[in-house]
Amino acid sequence: MSGETGTHSKGTGLRVYAFAYLLFLYAPVALLPIFAFNDSQIIAFPLSGFTDRWFGELWEAEPLHESLMNSLFVGITSSVLATLLGICAARASTRYEFPGKKPMMGFVMLPLVLPEIIVGVAMINIIVQLGMDLSLWTVILGHVLICTPFAIAILSAAFASLDRSLEEASLDLGETRMGTFLRVTLPLVMPGIVSSLLICFTISLDEFIIAFFLTGADTTLPVYIWGQLRFPGRLPSVFALGTLMLLASLLLLTLGEYFRRRSARKTGIEHTAGGLV
């Protein structure tokens, strides 16, 4: 496309830079599987042989299993709640005019521009003042707060790309408002809902600082990993865990993209309704 515009000569220099930059992006991640399979407790070169015992250790680490289950619980609950809230807000902002719409929307998007430590501090203050106990539910409260703006952004795009006359056609054909939402609106914004669930789940699963502040006796996975980082002997199995998590999220990502493309093919809508990328 740009070849015709005479910038082709600059391409080679940029190309070299681009590959160097990719190397920079991948350098740390590449170490993850290397040390996960390295037969030494010490994380350093030279490597000392292949082993899969660090993966075996993961099987026996009870606290790890617990924190993983906690994180899944927090992630699923937070993403479902944030997406439900997001559906309401996205629907309100794309379909209706009401007094105070702009400031209200701005306010609910605020967590997007607040450093997470501030959210953590603010929430722990109120929780301490109210005398509540810290638990996974307090973490969920925090995660729903920071995930909702992402859900709103994704779902607003999905709702906005929906032709309004489709809903009117449904009403015109005798369907109720509720029936219209279920039979027309929901199926058409489904890719956006799936994207929102995936993104919110990923954010929650990876979130450390709010969980660090708000977690009680039950820890989430990042808080568990943070604790393990202090013990050099545990590092290889932490790396093994990281490798598995990377594979899991890539699998999830691929699945999400597959379903998005499938539904796009089915409905003939290309690049609408809020895909992942």
């Binding site: 629907r91 005019e97 609910v108 967590p111």
Partner: peptide, 17 residues
Amino acid sequence: RGLTLMSPVFGYALLLL
């Protein structure tokens, strides 16, 4: 309708932010 839809989100942010 808009305000009704907006109220859970806004209430949540009010309460927790």
